[in-house]
């Protein structure tokens, strides 16, 4: 589990870095560009963060979903509030969708029997978890890089 905590710290720091860079350049976006940036960044960040948080928290299902929904709403409202009210709406919607998907992926990784995936061994379960979390972190880094690359151009 220590590796997944490390990946979570990397993801949170990448999200904070993205927020900081967007906050510094927020005057130069027009409205369509702001909507695109908000929906893309929010959906990527909440998908990956929800997946990691669900894997790490070992509580009941409804408590995990409550924590994840609060996290998604907070991230969406935070990224949307860089711009106008339309972007807050888009950010909230995309954050809630992304966090629900991420929570489902995390639940399946914790307990593959609910999807009838034939993995029973504990070490194989842990290996599966590490592989998919690492892959999601890689994709997230690519998405954040593309979002930040689009600011300069």
């Amino acid at each position: 589990m220590l590796g997944i905590i490390g990946l979570l710290i990397w993801n949170v720091s990448a999200a904070c870095f993205c927020y900081y860079r967007l906050h510094r350049r927020k005057r130069q976006f027009d409205s369509r560009y702001a909507a695109t940036i908000t929906s893309t960044a929010t959906m990527g960040i909440t998908l990956v963060l929800g997946m990691h948080v669900t894997v790490l928290v070992s509580a009941g299902l409804s408590l995990v979903f409550l924590v994840n929904l609060l996290l998604g709403a907070a991230v969406g409202a935070l990224f949307g509030s860089l711009f106008k009210y339309r972007e807050i709406l888009a950010g909230l919607y995309n954050g809630l969708v992304g966090v629900l998907m991420g929570a489902m992926i995390g639940e399946v990784l914790k307990n593959p029997q609910i999807c009838s995936i034939p993995i029973a061994d504990h070490t194989q379960l842990l290996l599966n978890m590490y592989q998919l979390c690492g892959f999601a972190t890689l994709l997230f880094t690519v998405v954040i890089g593309l979002v930040l690359y689009s600011i300069k151009g």
């Binding site: 695109t36 893309t40 959906m43 489902m104 999807c115 998405v143 689009s150």
Partner: peptide, 25 residues
């Protein structure tokens, strides 16, 4: 353009991560 590329990329990523789970049940 670039924004359409970002939108398509994030939607393809989300659907691709979700689809094997849907197929398994």
């Amino acid at each position: 353009d670039y924004q359409a590329m970002l939108t398509g990329l994030i939607n393809g990523m989300m659907m691709g991560l979700m689809a094997p789970m849907l197929g398994a049940i």
